[in-house]
């Protein structure tokens, strides 16, 4: 059974490859959105199993998107994994440095690392 993953990132080229790579595993169905505000709508609409969310985006940045998701019952418990280009390597290694209680992964990221992280967040009970 495939899982639905919503990828919200303003880099269309990046989301293009992430979608292809994740879907190529056969385990995921990927919905892509290149805008934060639209991403919230898509989340409410599709109710994905997990959301990959870019931190720095024009318009609505990642943290605001999370706050919006928390406002709606249907999206508040969806696990979010932040994707960020602005993170120190030691921050990824320390679980205490989660952004707003969510996991995050530093760009550039290999598909193998991404799927491993998605497996761990979707397997965990929704907080």
């Amino acid at each position: 059974m495939t899982q639905v993953i919503l990828v919200i990132d303003d880099e269309a080229d990046f989301t293009f490859f992430v979608k292809k790579n994740l879907e190529a595993t056969g385990q995921y169905q990927v919905v892509v959105c290149n805008d934060g505000a639209q991403g919230v709508q898509r989340a409410r609409q599709h109710r994905p199993d997990a959301i990959l969310l870019d931190v720095m985006m024009p318009g609505m940045p990642g943290e605001e998107v999370v706050n919006e998701l928390k406002k709606h019952k249907e999206t508040e418990r969806i696990p979010v994994v932040f994707l960020t280009a602005l993170v120190r390597p030691d921050e990824t290694a320390q679980s205490s440095n989660l952004i707003g209680g969510h996991r995050f992964i530093a760009k550039p990221v290999k598909i193998s690392e991404l799927t491993a992280l998605l497996r761990s967040v979707t397997a965990a009970p929704r907080a």
Partner: peptide, 12 residues
């Protein structure tokens, strides 16, 4: 890092 992320994803 963003273009690097695109390249690495493209490589994958």
């Amino acid at each position: 890092k963003n273009p690097l992320a695109i390249i690495l994803s493209g490589v994958d």
